[in-house]
Amino acid sequence: MMNKLIFIYFAVVILTSAILTITRRNLVHSIMFMLLLFFHIAGLFVLLNAEFLAAVQLIVYAGAILILYLFVVMLLNVDRERSAVRANRFWPWMVGFGIVIAGEVVLLIARGMFPAETDQPMQLAGTGVKELGIILYQKYLVPFEIASVILLVGLVGAVMLAKKDVKE
């Protein structure tokens, strides 16, 4: 019962801050609501016995990616945002389609059956970080290396794109 109450709190805050994120006019307010959302998703991960992922969520998403967004927003001149139109001209259609899709998906999932309905915590020694490391470095070693190549491409690509051309 307690777990259900905690889950409902996290879900309500996540959905509310997601809606506020996509509707605010001020970009910095949007980013702050996004920060709230990431904290509550980390709490949801703790509820699901994924403590390492909760820490990664806070450090990488809230600590790195959002700060990057905040820096770029402050680098660019977004003063026009105070008076500009927020949404494009199709937005009532898009919101209507979104409500229809959400209703359909919720109806489908609520009427469906999921076979995996246990609530036993995973049988792991310790906190599960060691098992995660073993499975990451043995079974999923090749995807791990590909992920590191993706990070390298991101690094080089960001520097190449954003630097100013220097004419000799």
Binding site: L15, I19, I22, L27, E81, A84, N88, W91, V95, A102
Partner: peptide, 19 residues
């Protein structure tokens, strides 16, 4: 699913590229 739908609506309806 609800969070994903909010994301889809945000992509399709906002003008600002950051959002």
């Amino acid at each position: 699913a609800l969070l994903f739908t909010i994301g889809v609506v945000g992509v399709l309806s906002r003008r600002n590229i950051f959002i």
